[in-house]
Design a protein around this nucleic acid. Structure first.
Length: 273
DNA sequence: CGGTGGACCTGCTGGC
DNA sequence: TGCCAGCAGGTCCACC
């Protein structure tokens, strides 16, 4: 499910709802997520107040007044849902966090590819998945001088390089397909074979696509919802992803689908070379 | 070492 | 209608 625009939408929707709220009760209903939920997870959260909601790549980082960080990754099907009225836990609600206000935050994840853990600031800085994250594609560090050498020295497909979280933090399959369409490049092109001009197009189109998707509150197929369980709208603006057999919105050619590294890739053979 | 393919898990869709 | 294969937005690890 969630790539950078969806995670950022969750962050923005949760921030005003949960900041300054004190956690009074924590229930773990399912410990087996991508990593098992820590033994002392409940104790680490209980009594703390959420100070800020940050994002790094696809990770949501909930900063606590205890100086710990509650790290959440939504995997493929994870949701963080804010409830003002309690109800019995639903199927696949794995975590229920109750605030002093009586409101709740729940982590819900049918496929359990998601992740929840509590780390202090030093541990968070050391934790390899966070430590190795590449630049944020919406930051000024994401520029030609950064990206061109990484692509130029890689034999991998441009799609795989852009999806590598150590290179760019937050891109996944949907947005890489869209970015490469708008850059006029086939996903199977090898990084080393791209010209400076072509990498310039990627650098320009990446924030354009991501910012448009954030404005439309992300892409919802089946699962994705923001912190208030609302769908996004960007699925109606996709140019190639999930559009195999349909007409290209630019040239009317038929959008093609192929498999690259065990996942679906969508492209227009006329617009992308 | 870099690069690829499968595993992890549940649910939905489409074909027969 | 029912069943089953195939597919899904992410990450990690074994293997070449």
């Amino acid at each position: 499910m969630p790539e950078l625009p969806e995670v950022e939408t969750v962050r923005r929707s949760l921030e005003p709802l949960i900041c300054r709220q004190q956690i009074v009760r924590v229930q773990v209903l399912q410990r087996q997520l991508r990593l098992p939920v820590q033994r002392n997870f409940e104790l680490q959260l209980k009594g703390t107040t959420i100070r800020k909601v940050n994002r790094r790549g696809k990770y949501v980082l909930l900063e606590l007044d205890s100086e710990d960080v509650w790290v959440v990754h939504l995997g493929m099907s994870g949701k963080l849902i804010y409830l003002t009225d309690s109800c019995p836990p639903q199927k696949h609600d794995h975590l229920v966090v109750c605030f002093a206000s009586g409101h709740e935050l729940r982590f819900h994840d049918p496929r359990r590819f998601g992740l929840c853990l509590v780390l202090n600031h030093q541990e968070a800085a050391q934790w390899p998945p966070l430590r190795h994250l590449g630049v944020d594609p919406l930051s000024p560090q994401f520029c030609l001088e950064y990206l061109y050498p990484l692509l130029h020295h890689s034999k991998r497909r441009v799609k795989d390089v852009l999806m590598d979280q150590r290179v760019v933090a937050g891109l996944g399959n949907i947005y890489v397909n869209e970015i490469l369409f708008r850059s006029g490049l086939r996903p199977t092109r090898r990084g080393a074979r791209l010209s400076v001009r072509q990498v310039e197009r990627i650098v320009a189109m990446t924030p354009t696509v991501l910012e448009e998707a954030i404005r439309l509150r992300g892409t919802s197929f089946a699962d994705y919802r923001d912190g208030e369980n609302r769908k996004g709208e960007f699925q109606n603006h996709l140019k190639v992803y999930n559009r195999a057999g349909k007409q290209c919105r630019v040239c009317s050619d038929t959008i093609k689908r192929m498999r690259v590294g065990n996942r679906g890739v969508f492209y227009c053979a006329t617009c992308q070379t």
